[in-house]
Amino acid sequence: MRTRAALLVLVVVGAVVTACGTQSPRVDAAPTRSTATPTAAGADAKARSGTEATPAQASATLGFTAHTLDGDTFDGRSLAGRPTVLWFWAPWCPTCVGQAPTVTKLAEAYDGKVNVVGVAGLDQAAAMEEFVTRTGVQGMRHLSDEKGAVWKRFGVTAQSTFVLLDADGEVAFKGYLEPSDLASRVDALTG
């Protein structure tokens, strides 16, 4: 009996460490476009309509609400019209801590051109707020997704995961990204 309990503990600890450790690039199963050409379909839609998507025309992907760490209500449809980076992080994740400076620089560099939103999960709001302060990522919006509703909506199963949306709100990429890969993918979305 003790052997089974010890084995179960080792499996759980291994799963947590693996989920937060170095991850290889991956694309999870979800309703996504090809990651090879992240803006092709969005560009075609804009060319046909002549305009960018508005919140009223936003993709069904953006049809969600959540709360920010500040306690405000966040409407996913507000992301329509610009490419978006959703950064799914957890307060106790060392990979996420290491990515914080890159995400902050990205948010600053693309201010007004790209929405950059942190989606905090897998812990309580107090730990999420402490992470934001400790890592210096206060300059962007962060959703408090304690129950994992936004994580589930986008099929995210591990931190740190990036979900990149085109200006129409369609998923262009989902998975782990190294800093240089994140920047090049965002460049491709902004054309």
Rank of each mutant, 00 (worst) to 15 (best):
T65R: 15
A90T: 07
V117R: 02
A125C: 01
V103A: 07
F64D: 07
A60P: 11
L106R: 09
M128R: 13
F74N: 03
Q138C: 00
G121S: 10
V97E: 09
S144W: 00
D123E: 10
F131W: 13
H142E: 06
E129L: 04
G112R: 15
L106N: 08
L86Y: 08
T133V: 01
M128Y: 12
V116N: 05
W89T: 06
R82I: 06
V132T: 00
W87Q: 07
R134L: 02
G121Y: 02
A60H: 15
V114T: 12
A90M: 03
W87G: 06
G71V: 05
V97M: 07
A126M: 00
P101W: 04
V137T: 01
T104R: 15
V85G: 05
A60R: 15
P83D: 05
K105I: 11
D111V: 13
L69G: 09
Q124G: 12
T102Y: 12
T61P: 02
V117Q: 02
L79S: 06
G76E: 02
H142N: 02
V119C: 10
V97N: 08
D75A: 12
V132K: 00
S144M: 04
A126Y: 00
T68K: 08
R141C: 00
W89K: 08
P83T: 11
N115F: 13
K105Y: 10
W87R: 05
T65I: 13
L106E: 09
T104S: 15
P101H: 06
A107H: 06
G71L: 07
M128L: 13
F88G: 01
Q99T: 09
R77H: 00
G63I: 07
G136K: 07
T61F: 04
E129W: 04
P83N: 13
T73Q: 15
G121L: 05
A125E: 05
H67T: 13
A90W: 04
F88I: 00
P91D: 14
D72Y: 08
G121I: 06
F74P: 02
G136W: 09
G71R: 02
L79V: 12
L106W: 10
D123R: 10
